[in-house]
């Protein structure tokens, strides 16, 4: 069997793919995410982003005091189009069901 150390299991990104991105001159969290696909699967980086940052910091490739995560965007939970379609165009100001 091959030896593989996974950073991102959703998109099958191993330490080897991270090395490849670094070799191509990509250096920031955002660039590595986009090139390797890390953090773009169903977990949206919840499992893998901190592992990547830890790896970059431990190698001196990111500054621990300055490094920032990639942009947090909704949805943070899986939500269906059907549920979202139930939200009216402008939610009422007062509480209550509609």
């Amino acid at each position: 069997m091959s030896h593989r150390v996974f950073v991102c299991r959703c998109e099958d990104v191993t330490t080897h793919e991270i090395e490849d991105a670094l070799d191509r001159g990509l250096s920031t969290v955002e660039e590595i995410k986009r090139y390797t696909g890390l953090g773009t699967g169903p977990c949206q980086g919840k499992e893998c982003m901190c592992t990547l940052v830890g790896l970059l910091v431990s190698r001196g490739l990111a500054d621990a005091d300055a490094v920032q995560p990639f942009t947090a965007r909704p949805p943070a939970e899986a939500v269906t189009f059907g549920a979202l379609a139930a939200v009216p165009e402008s939610p009422p100001e007062k509480g209550g069901a509609s």
Partner: peptide, 13 residues
């Protein structure tokens, strides 16, 4: 096709 409708509720606590 999902025939169940979702219920919506707004709150301002």
């Amino acid at each position: 096709v999902d025939g169940r409708g979702a219920t919506f509720r707004h709150e301002a606590p």
